[in-house]
């Protein structure tokens, strides 16, 4: 039985006791899947499992507080579920986690770039076939094959958790561990190679086109303040309505700092950005800092306390300045 069929079987069994089960289904064209909310048995057959399940369904869980729901997760998504449990933002008894081994998902922006290089428009995608290590997209009658390693999401290129870290129903064979590819952190490496003033210019360049839609925030499973974000509060007045680079960047700093020690690097902020702004680099840098300082990784252990919610009398890696 395929992973997909096994998932469907398990979901059908559990569905009567659940408000809904969140997964993925086919979207408006061949290149896009879209989140699916299974509320009846007929919906179960719409479920998809594979490289186009780019979204992180954990983002919806806190909105179902008090109701028992199911969620289908990839390995990376399961870390968000664990982080939500760590922070007691969802109740373990109210979530049923379905999962299967994940062989990686595509980054639609990379597919778009590949198609553009072949003179094609991703907006004309007709067919997508994923076969082991190759993704073949047919657009405007022309098929373009691209190695999965070149169009996979960055997170997949150095995935430590292709299998869920926590699941109630894990079906099929586990997926193999991947060897971290050097390309996985090209964005961070590029920033590291810049001087500090160049980085200022980098953010000036990119944030200029931000439209302040807050898709980065709303797609983030850890942004649980939802309708009460300080970005849109007038009192305190953290951000003004002016569309300056200062205000736009300040929001990214707010988002990143509020994720310090909590971010599981699912990459939804950057994937959701309609303007292709590389906002994930900020979180990657912060996660590296958290790892260096506190030897900690978010969302792998339900019992772990996030590093900024605890302290040591003598810190191991903080060297304070002597004057």
């Amino acid at each position: 039985m395929s992973r997909l069929d096994a998932l469907k079987t398990r979901i059908k069994e559990a569905l009567p006791g659940l408000e809904c089960v969140i997964g993925w289904q086919k979207g408006y064209d061949a290149l896009h899947n879209t989140p699916l909310f299974i509320r009846g048995e007929a919906d179960v057959d719409k479920l998809e499992w594979g490289a186009l399940n780019v979204h992180n369904p954990a983002v919806y869980l806190p909105s179902f507080a008090g109701k028992k729901v199911g969620v289908v997760v990839k390995g990376c998504d399961s870390r968000s579920v664990v982080e939500l449990l760590q922070e007691k933002l969802i109740d373990r008894d109210n979530v049923v986690i379905f999962s299967a081994g994940c062989d990686g998902v595509v980054d639609i922006a990379k597919v778009r770039a590949k198609l553009a290089a072949a003179g094609l428009n991703a907006g004309n995608a007709e067919k997508v076939a994923v076969d082991g290590k190759t993704v073949t997209v047919t657009a405007a009658g022309k098929a373009v094959s691209m190695p999965m390693a070149e169009v996979a999401a960055d997170k997949c290129l150095r995935c430590q958790f292709p299998n869920a870290v926590l699941a109630d129903a894990f079906v099929g064979d586990p997926a193999p561990q991947v060897q971290a590819a050097p390309a996985a952190d090209a964005d961070l490496a590029a920033l590291d190679a810049m001087s500090v003033p160049e980085r200022m210019a980098f953010w000036r360049y990119h944030m200029d086109r931000c439209i302040r839609c807050y898709a980065c925030r709303n797609a983030c499973p850890m942004c649980v303040c939802r309708d009460h974000c300080i970005a849109q509060s007038r009192e305190p007045h953290w951000l003004s309505q002016e569309d300056s680079v200062t205000e736009k960047l300040m929001f990214q700093v707010v988002h990143a700092m509020h994720l310090a020690g909590r971010c599981t690097e699912c990459g939804e902020c950057q994937r959701a950005c309609p303007m292709d702004i590389p906002v994930l680099a900020l979180k990657k840098h912060l996660n590296r800092t958290i790892h260096d300082l506190f030897d900690y990784q978010a969302g792998v252990d339900v019992a772990a306390i996030p590093p900024l919610l605890q302290f040591k009398l003598e810190e191991d890696n903080i060297k304070e300045r002597s004057w």
Partner: peptide
Amino acid sequence: RDQSDKCVSCGACTYL
């Protein structure tokens, strides 16, 4: 509710 289940309530659609 069924139409909006998956919406994340951001402003991308309106601003663009």
